[in-house]
Structure formats: structure tokens, C-alpha cells
Design a protein around this nucleic acid. Structure first.
Length: 270
DNA sequence: CTGCGGTCCTGAAGGC
DNA sequence: TGCCTTCAGGACCGCA
């Protein structure tokens, strides 16, 4: 599932392709996945691409934005005019035609969406602190954790608290910090909070460095079709039954908040 | 506040 | 072989 590193990778890759380009046509094959009137963005130019949490924003010359959430299986595929092959027709639901090139929005499960928005601040008001921002301090994290007795992994994945962490990177960060995903977040000592903050930054940086994780059941690929390689560096996510790289314990899978949760009971604890 | 279950959707996997 | 059921999950919603 595209989380912060995957969306950031897409943003960087796509920015170099569509910045300055003009939108000529929007083909909507699945109306429920597109909100807003596409007429309002025809003939506008792409000013810039931004990311908040797991959401991509394409800023347009008429001060509107295309807000894109890829959810579990969304893909944004760029095809320059030169190539004529159309990718994965069956899962393509929206195509944006530019003055040069086309952007395909594919989504196997059709959970993702694109909408036209005007008020960036309003749309992002509820999104929590970005891990790479100055506000992501030990103090902020401690306050967030103190306020809840929910399992720490659920708090990490709460987009209103911390932006961009999903199932993969929250699991990996907790392994890195040697903290069980099941621990009530308000039970973490300040030393652990500090370690967890560093672990979050570490795994996210690595995720971006390896251009995202294209794990076994993931549909994630980059806009030019390449896979990421962070899946080769996963320590716990989807590694149940394997030996822990750190202590040799057996990685366990449990269900938490309805989601698969992976950890090493030996070195991360209960 | 918290947890639970349902919702969207498809393909893979398991049962018989 | 083939049909049927179950499951996975990000975000949101309603309910207890």
C-alpha cells in the first residue's frame, strides 16, 4: 500500500514529467472515483506537486488542486506520447491527457480517488504532523502517546496524529525501536519514545532511498513502471514464520485493529 | 474516548 | 476441475 515513501517517490518522479504541462482532457471511466467537474481544470497548467501524509496534490495554474489518494492499490502511470502501449486496461479508471503525455490512474480494488479541490488548507486540516517536519519532536510524540491507551501501532497509523505511516512502516519502525506494537501507547517511557521517533525517521528515509516497497501483495510501482526495492529490506512486515534478523526469534503475525501486524515477540516483547 | 463491525472491491487461497 | 467461501486492507461511518 502506498505510504509516505511510496507517495513521495511517485511525487518526485511525476513532478519531473508533468510540471509545466497543460491538461487537455480527462477521461473518467469510473465516475465514483472522481469528484468534481473536470471542465474546471481543462487548459490549466501543472504548477507543482506536493505530498501530505499519503495524499498527492497536483497544484494547477487556476489555484485548484488535484487531490489523489491511492489507498491500497492505486497506481499513477506516466506514458510519454512516444509510447503507444496502454497499460493494464482493466484496472485503468481515469486517464488525464496532457499537451504531451498521459497519466493513468489504475486501481485494482477501486478504493482510491481523485478530487478537484480549491481549499488546500481545509482539505489538509485534519492531517497530523509530517514526520520530516520540525514539529515532529519527541515532545509532540510523547504528548500524543500519553493521550491514549490504544496499542502504539494504532496510534502510529492514526493519520490525524502522524502523517503517512501505514501498516508497513509502522511495523518496521516498531521493530527498529524494539517496541511491541501491542503496547498501550501511554505505557512508553520517554527513552522509548525518543528511540521510536528516530526509528520512524530511519525507516521512512530508507523507504524513500529504495524508492518504496513493492511487497508481494502490493500493486505499488513508480510512475515509469519500475518497482521499489524496500521490500528486500523488510524486517518484520509479511515475514511471519521467518527468523528475526536481530535475535533469531520467530516473527509473529497477529491481528490488531483488523489489520495484520508483524513483530518479533522475543526482542520486541509481548 | 474506545472498540467493534460494516462498507467499498478484487483476486488469491482454501475447502470439498 | 470447479464452485463456493473467506480473507486482506485505508479510511470512514454508525453504534454500543
Amino acid at each position: 500500500m502506498p505510504e509516505l515513501p511510496e507517495v513521495e517517490t511517485i511525487r518526485r518522479s511525476l513532478a519531473s514529467k508533468i510540471r509545466g504541462r497543460k491538461i487537455k482532457k480527462v477521461l473518467i471511466l469510473k465516475p465514483k472515483m472522481f469528484r468534481g467537474d473536470p471542465k474546471n481544470i481543462i487548459e490549466t497548467k501543472v504548477i507543482d506537486l506536493q505530498r501530505r501524509a499519503k495524499i498527492l496534490f497536483i497544484k494547477l495554474s487556476n489555484n485548484k488542486y488535484l487531490m489523489i489518494h491511492l489507498k491500497l492499490n492505486g497506481q499513477l502511470i506516466w506514458l510519454s506520447e512516444a509510447k503507444k502501449t496502454v497499460p493494464s486496461g482493466k484496472t485503468t479508471h481515469i486517464i488525464i491527457f496532457f499537451d504531451k503525455g498521459r497519466l493513468f490512474f489504475n486501481d485494482l480494488r477501486q478504493f482510491g480517488w481523485i478530487k478537484i479541490i480549491s481549499d488546500f488548507k481545509k482539505e489538509t486540516a485534519k492531517i497530523g504532523v509530517e514526520p520530516f517536519s520540525r514539529e515532529f519532536t519527541v515532545k509532540y510524540l510523547s504528548e500524543v502517546f500519553c493521550q491514549s491507551k490504544r496499542a502504539v501501532k494504532l496510534v502510529l497509523m492514526d493519520q490525524e496524529k502522524i502523517a503517512g505511516l501505514g501498516n508497513i512502516y509502522s511495523s518496521e519502525a516498531l521493530w527498529e525501536a524494539k517496541i511491541s506494537p501491542l503496547r498501550p501507547s501511554n505505557s512508553l517511557e520517554s527513552k522509548e519514545v525518543k528511540k521510536l521517533r528516530e526509528a520512524i525517521l530511519k525507516v521512512l528515509k530508507e523507504g524513500i532511498e529504495y524508492k518504496g516497497a513493492s511487497a508481494a501483495d502490493q500493486a505499488y510501482i513508480q510512475p515509469l513502471g519500475e518497482k521499489g526495492s524496500y521490500q528486500e529490506h523488510l524486517r518484520v512486515y509479511q515475514q511471519d514464520g521467518e527468523k528475526c534478523a536481530r535475535c533469531g526469534g520467530i516473527i509473529k503475525r497477529v491481528k490488531l485493529g483488523g489489520r495484520g501486524t508483524f513483530y518479533c515477540p522475543k526482542c520486541q516483547g509481548g
